[in-house]
Design a binder for these strands. Structure first.
Length: 546
DNA sequence: GCCGTTTTCGGCCCGACTGTTTTCAGTCG
C-alpha cells in the first residue's frame, strides 16, 4: 500500500543517487519534496484526488508526475533506472560519517569499491595509499568511520525526543555549573519539538569559550571529542548521541539561535526573503552592507526582516513566514495557560504523603484542578484501585481553588466507572483497540488517551472523541498523540489534553514535550481543554458523593 | 527540479572545520 513515508523515502533515495552522479541542484529539490511529503498530515492519495499536489512545497511538474506514478503503480520508473545505474552499496557509503557523494563516487569509479565491506577490503589492501587527496590522516579517519559504521548498524538513527530530554537537561546543567556560560539553549530539532532528534545543538555565550569546551568535554556523558575549533566542538556521548556545542558572542546569540534552531527550509526562506530586501542573514546577525541591524535576540532578528517572532515549534516553512510578514502570529498555548491536568497518576503503592506532595506541586504550578486516576481497568483488563487512604486524602485536600478529582481510567469495554468518578479517561487496550461504538449516555468521558498504532485507529478515536465531547491527549509515549496527531485533532475540531507534568521528576519529559507537541500542532489556548479555568463536569464529583 | 510583488530563465544559504592543499575541496549542519 502506498504511503507518504515510503514516497518520502524514495525521493530521499533519488536525491542520494543524484548526489553520487554529481548533480548540482536536483538532489536538494528532491530532498525538499521528501521533507514536505513526510510532514503532511494527509495522505498523498487524497491530495492527488483533489488535484492539489502542486500546493505541496517543493512539488512541481516533474515530482507531481512521479507521485502520481507511485500512487498508481507503487513504483517510480525514474528511481528504478537510477538504481540500475548505481550499485546499492555505493549509496550505503554515504551513511558513513565524513564520507560524502564526491568521495563515494571516486571510490566507486576509481577503485571499483561498491559498498562498505569492499571499502574495508580496499583499505586493508592499501589501495588508498598514494591516491590523490587521501593522505595518511584521511585514510585513518575513513578506516575508523567505516569500521564504526559496520560494527553499529544503528549509528545515525534518530532518537525519540523524550529519550533525549533528560540527557539534554543534564548537559545544560553541567554547562551552567562549570563553564561560566551565561546563556545556554538547546537549539535544533529538539527546540522545535520534533518527535525525534538526530543530534543535539547546544548554544552558549561565555566569556571563556575554551573553558566551556574543556568543561563540556569532561562531562561524564561524553565518550569522545570528534572535533574542536574556535567556535564549535562536536562530541559523541556514551549512548551514541552526537552533540554540537557552539560558543557565540552575546551580540550574536539571537541570530545564532535562529540559525541553529532551523528548520533548514525555514532558514532558506528567511535568507531569500532577506536577500530580496537587500539584507544578509547569517549566524552572527542581520546586516545591510557594513551596517549591522540585529543579532542579540531572536525578536530583533525577525523584526529587522519585517517579521513577527516565530515560535520555534512551527519553524518548518509551512507558511509561518508569510503569516509573520502579515503581523503577529496567534499566541500558542504555553505553560501558564494550563489551568489544570485531566490525567495524573500516582504510584500503585502511594499513600497520603504522595497526595500531599502532588497537591503542593499543583499549587506551585498554579493549577486549579487535577484528575487523579484512582481506579479503573489496566492495559490487560484487570480492575485496579488506589488505597482508601489515598482517596480519603484527595477528598480532604480538595478545595475550591484546587479541586482534586478522582477519575476512572478504562478501555471503553464493558467495565464502567462507578458514580463517584468525576470523569472518565478512555484508551485502547489489547482487548479493545477500537473505540466504543457509540457514546454511552451516562458516562462522563473527558479525555481520550490513545496509541498512534494505526492511522485508521486514530481516525476512529478522533471521531469518537468528537462525538463524546472529549479531549484527546497529546504528548510523548505510546498512549498519546504526537504533533501530527494533534494537528489532525485540531482539524477534526477535537480539543487537546496537554500534560502539565505536575508531580513528575525534574527531568521527566511528559510535561515539557507534551506542551511542545501541542505548540508544534499550532494549538492556541482555546484548542486545549485544560486551559479552561473549570474542570470538566465540575458539578459531577459532588453528585457522586451523595 | 523548483520557483517568482523585480524574474517563466537563472538563480538556488552560507560559514566552520578538516585535511591536503601552495589556495582549495569536501563534508556538515
Amino acid at each position: 500500500m502506498p504511503s507518504n513515508a515510503e514516497a518520502a523515502e524514495i525521493f530521499q533515495s533519488i536525491a542520494d543517487l543524484l548526489d553520487v552522479l554529481g548533480e548540482k541542484f536536483k538532489p536538494d529539490a528532491y530532498r525538499r519534496a521528501a521533507r514536505s511529503i513526510e510532514s503532511l498530515t494527509e495522505d498523498l492519495g487524497a491530495i492527488a484526488g483533489r488535484n492539489e499536489l502542486r500546493s505541496v512545497p517543493g512539488v512541481g511538474d516533474a515530482i507531481e508526475e512521479k507521485i502520481r506514478e507511485y500512487l498508481a503503480t507503487g513504483h517510480i520508473t525514474y528511481y528504478d533506472k537510477l538504481q540500475q545505474q548505481i550499485p546499492a552499496g555505493v549509496v550505503e557509503l554515504l551513511k558513513i560519517p565524513g564520507l560524502g557523494p564526491k568521495t563515494a563516487r571516486r571510490f566507486w569509479i576509481e577503485l571499483g569499491v561498491e559498498g562498505p565491506a569492499e571499502l574495508t577490503a580496499a583499505l586493508d589492501a592499501g589501495r588508498l595509499d598514494g591516491v590523490k587527496g587521501f593522505g595518511p590522516k584521511k585514510v585513518a579517519q575513513i578506516r575508523a568511520a567505516v569500521e564504526a559504521f559496520r560494527a553499529n548498524a544503528n549509528a545515525g538513527a534518530r532518537m525519540p525526543i523524550q529519550d533525549a530530554y533528560p540527557i539534554a537537561m543534564a548537559l545544560v546543567r553541567g554547562l551552567r555549573q562549570g563553564a561560566r556560560a551565561e546563556q545556554v539553549e538547546v537549539a535544533g530539532s529538539f527546540r522545535r519539538g520534533r518527535e525525534t532528534v538526530g543530534d543535539l545543538d547546544i548554544l552558549v555565550t561565555s566569556v571563556e569559550p575554551e573553558r566551556a569546551f574543556d568543561v563540556f568535554s569532561a562531562l561524564p556523558q561524553v565518550q569522545e571529542v570528534r572535533l574542536r575549533g574556535g567556535t564549535k566542538e562536536t562530541v559523541l556521548l556514551r549512548n551514541g548521541l552526537q552533540v554540537d556545542l557552539r560558543v557565540v558572542e552575546p551580540a550574536s546569540f539571537g541570530a545564532a539561535l535562529v540559525y541553529f534552531t532551523g528548520s533548514k527550509d525555514h532558514n532558506v526562506q528567511i535568507r531569500s526573503l532577506a536577500k530580496d530586501r537587500g539584507l544578509r542573514v547569517n549566524e552572527y546577525g542581520v546586516t545591510r552592507g557594513e551596517e549591522r541591524l540585529a543579532g542579540r535576540t531572536e525578536e530583533d532578528v525577525y523584526r529587522s526582516l519585517g517579521l513577527a517572532w516565530v515560535p520555534p515549534e512551527i519553524r518548518e516553512a509551512r507558511g509561518e513566514i508569510e503569516a509573520a510578514a502579515r503581523g503577529p502570529l496567534p499566541r500558542l498555548v504555553d505553560t501558564p495557560d494550563l489551568r489544570g491536568d485531566l490525567h495524573v497518576h500516582l504510584p500503585a503503592d502511594a499513600g497520603p504523603v504522595e497526595v500531599d506532595r502532588l497537591a503542593a506541586a499543583a499549587k506551585a504550578q498554579h493549577l486549579a484542578y487535577l484528575g487523579v486516576v484512582t481506579h479503573g481497568v489496566d492495559a490487560v483488563g484487570d480492575a485496579f484501585e488506589l488505597p482508601a487512604a489515598v482517596r480519603t486524602r484527595l477528598a480532604e485536600l480538595s478545595t475550591p481553588s484546587l479541586r482534586l478529582a478522582r477519575v476512572w481510567e478504562g478501555d471503553g469495554g464493558a467495565s464502567a466507572p462507578p458514580v463517584d468518578a468525576a470523569w472518565e479517561i478512555v484508551r485502547p487496550s489489547a482487548r479493545h483497540r477500537a473505540p466504543p461504538s457509540a457514546t454511552r449516555p451516562n458516562h462522563r468521558i473527558a479525555l481520550v488517551a490513545h496509541g498512534p498504532a494505526d492511522p485508521a485507529d486514530a481516525t476512529a478515536w478522533l471521531a469518537f472523541a468528537h462525538s463524546a465531547g472529549a479531549a484527546v491527549e497529546v504528548g510523548p509515549g505510546p498512549e498519546r498523540l504526537d504533533s501530527n496527531g494533534a494537528r489532525r485533532a485540531r482539524e477534526a475540531h477535537v480539543l487537546l489534553g496537554v500534560p502539565t507534568g505536575v508531580g513528575t521528576a525534574e527531568d521527566d519529559p511528559t510535561g515539557p514535550i507534551g506542551l511542545r507537541f501541542a505548540r508544534r500542532a499550532g494549538a492556541v489556548p482555546s484548542d486545549v481543554r485544560n486551559s479552561a479555568a473549570q474542570p470538566p463536569f465540575s458539578g459531577a464529583s459532588k453528585r457522586g458523593r451523595s
